[in-house]
């Protein structure tokens, strides 16, 4: 583990060193490619400007995750309870993912305005699919012998869901949630690019128009950090929720 971490850190430092060195030796203009040291300085010094926008984007992502969970969990449970519902809804679910999210963004601005709602919905649309699919697969993966046992214990569907299917599917659920939260930033930022008054995507568009490329990179860095934070946050929640699995 330590070796892997050291290797990852080594690769990162090497790439940053190459980038920094190339920028200094070739003297690339900073409005084309700023060196990493300038990006880091901008990310820190511009923090008072970036922070309120980052909070807006973070709120959109968190609300998006909440909305996605509110739809995905009952949907996966219903599709598991009623296989005919799964057969009926599967084509629509797949189609919803085949539509490029960029194409939906302008429509959502028209329908929901420049506020948070459109961005929340964008994030939710991106996240809900991996959560629904992984949760459903988790439910389906429950061994037949356990189902028979619960049947013979006289457990109803929802009782079995609470005691057996849900804990059984939790590792799958968290796998889906991890995928979901990492792409959630994409949904929120695309929404902000198309039409917003606040948020990291909005700030990115403003900085890009003024050729403040160092700020654009600094914002990308903030977004990456937010994605990492969400990833580790879900990982922490997973370890807390399925402690039995990690103790095994």
């Amino acid at each position: 583990m330590l070796r892997a971490n050291l290797l990852a850190l080594g690769i990162l430092l090497l790439l940053l060193g190459l980038w920094e060195g190339s920028c200094r030796i070739v003297e690339v203009p900073i409005f084309i490619l700023p060196p990493p040291s300038l990006i880091a300085r901008t990310a820190l010094l511009q923090a008072p400007l970036i922070l309120p926008h980052a909070l807006t984007t973070a709120l959109e992502i968190i609300c998006g995750i909440g909305l996605a969970l509110a739809v995905a969990i009952p949907l996966a449970m219903s599709m598991f309870a009623y296989p005919w519902l799964e057969r009926a809804l599967s084509p629509f679910l797949v189609a919803s993912q085949a539509i490029p999210v960029f194409a939906l963004a302008p429509l959502l601005v028209v329908w929901l305005g420049y506020g948070m709602a459109g961005k929340v919905l964008m994030a939710a649309i991106i996240i809900f699919f991996p959560i629904t699919v992984s949760l459903l697969e988790g439910f389906k993966g429950c061994d037949r012998e356990y189902r028979v046992l619960f049947r013979l214990m006289g457990a109803g569907f929802w009782q079995t869901m609470r005691l057996l299917y849900w804990p059984w599917a939790l590792p799958h659920f968290f796998a889906g949630l991890r995928v979901g939260v990492t792409v959630a930033t994409i949904g929120a930022v695309i929404g902000e690019w198309v039409g917003a008054q606040k948020g990291l995507g909005y700030l990115m568009i403003q900085a890009n128009a003024r050729l403040k490329v160092d700020l654009v990179f600094a914002l990308i860095l903030w977004l990456s950090l937010m994605g990492l934070l969400l990833w580790f946050g879900v990982g922490w929640l997973e370890k807390k929720s399925i402690r039995w699995k990690y103790k095994q």
């Binding site: 356990y146 028979v148 046992l149 214990m153 006289g154 009782q159 005691l163 057996l164 804990p167 095994q248």
Partner: peptide, 29 residues
């Protein structure tokens, strides 16, 4: 299913419940 209990070659204990909680499952359901 209405009148019989069931035993399998696997112990079928739920890994997220303690031994006592596992044994109480028939009473809970």
């Amino acid at each position: 299913g209405e009148v019989a209990a069931y035993m399998h070659q696997k112990d079928l204990l739920l890994p997220w419940f303690s031994l006592l909680e596992n044994s109480l499952l028939p009473a809970r359901t």
